[in-house]
């Protein structure tokens, strides 16, 4: 296997808030290989967007980030400001969550794309490149003159994708690119991303709370819970035969691609996702787990091998039995 393009090692992110520190990501490691799509799934608040922000170091000032984000072996978290600005968007870019708020409402979308191109001077003909990018994502070039509010949700999402591709990044982080869209448009955007990934040989991190979507776009998937990865493995396997009880609940929540009716409360899963400021002891999932064991509240779970390239953080995996 080739060396990973992006390698995240023991990433911890703690936000500062009025009510005290918020440990949103608590020790996450994963690798992304060239040309690969890695899925990142989990309930709202488990820390998915936080990871995306940490990779480009764009979290709010004062946020504590430790660990390593190695891009071709170079740690993004240790880069000098100038180097960091040069890496942003040319090496890694993000399709931000919430396309309505991610675009500046008082600037034409074409100018917002052009700004990225001109900042990095990737091509002298910025205007032509904007037209090319818009056509690449299936929008007519004249849409460059529109303001965000003049576009539909799906069109805005396409603009954000075009924007993310502006400087030919090697890694594309797509943060819930289909969540706010209706089912038809979701399928179109998914197809678009998949096509772009193939044609441009992108390495992609695809973030969603919807495991079924991941089984469609990714080869490998990681499931997060309370700021940690609790299961990882081939996407289809994780979706079809989850090993962690939380992954089972998540898989059961979205039997169909694009069904978001249970977003906040995956079916059959009692209780709420834990507050990052008060994470339960032992296995953080034990309070909501249907197959909880007496030792779970104390057991320090970690990702244990769970057969054919899979790992899961559950006592049942350690015991060798499927939950």
């Amino acid at each position: 296997m080739t060396a990973p393009l992006l390698s995240v090692r023991d990433l911890h992110v703690t936000y500062r808030s009025e009510a005290g520190p918020v440990p949103a990501v608590r020790g996450v490691s994963f690798d992304l290989h060239p040309g690969e799509t890695l899925g990142l799934a989990g309930e709202s608040g488990c820390g998915k967007s936080t990871i995306a922000g940490a990779l480009l170091k764009v979290l709010p000032p004062g946020t504590e980030v430790t660990g390593e984000v190695l891009l071709d072996g170079e740690d993004v978290l240790q880069m000098k400001p100038g180097r960091l600005r040069a890496v942003r968007w040319t090496e890694m870019s993000i399709v931000f969550q919430g396309a309505l708020h991610a675009l500046n409402p008082v600037q034409r979308v074409g100018n917002q794309i052009e700004e990225a191109i001109e900042t990095h001077r990737t091509t002298p003909a910025a205007t032509a490149r904007v037209a090319e990018l818009l056509e690449l994502v299936g929008l007519p070039a004249r849409r460059a003159g529109d303001y965000p509010h003049q576009l539909s949700g799906g069109q805005r999402q396409r603009v954000l994708i075009a924007l993310a591709l502006a400087c030919n990044p090697r890694v594309l982080i797509a943060d819930e690119p289909t969540t706010a869209l209706d089912v038809m448009v979701q399928a179109q955007v998914l197809e678009l991303l998949e096509r772009l990934q193939r044609e441009l040989a992108l390495s992609m991190i695809f973030i969603t709370h919807d495991l079924s979507t991941l089984s469609y776009v990714c080869r490998r998937t990681a499931v997060m819970y309370a700021g940690r990865i609790v299961e990882e493995g081939p996407a289809e396997e994780v979706f079809a035969h989850p090993r962690h009880p939380y992954a089972s609940a998540l898989a059961a929540a979205f039997p169909l691609i694009g069904d978001h009716s249970h977003r906040m409360n995956p079916s059959g899963l009692p209780g709420d996702p834990p507050d990052p400021r008060a994470i339960p002891s032992g296995c953080p999932f034990h309070l909501r787990c249907a197959v909880v064991q007496p030792e779970c509240p104390e057991l320090d779970v970690e990702l244990w091998p769970a057969g054919d390239g899979r790992r899961a953080a559950c006592i049942h995996v350690l015991a060798g039995a499927a939950p």
């Binding site: 764009v58 600005r85 968007w89 040319t90 993000i94 931000f96 991610a102 500046n104 600037q107 990095h120």
Partner: peptide
């Protein structure tokens, strides 16, 4: 959020401020 995006694009902080934050 669009300020986070402007920073992620690789703009300098002053440019983010003068071009995106202050006009709005």
């Amino acid at each position: 959020d669009y300020l986070t995006l402007a920073r992620a694009k690789g703009l300098r902080d002053v440019v983010v401020r003068n071009r995106h934050a202050v006009p709005n």
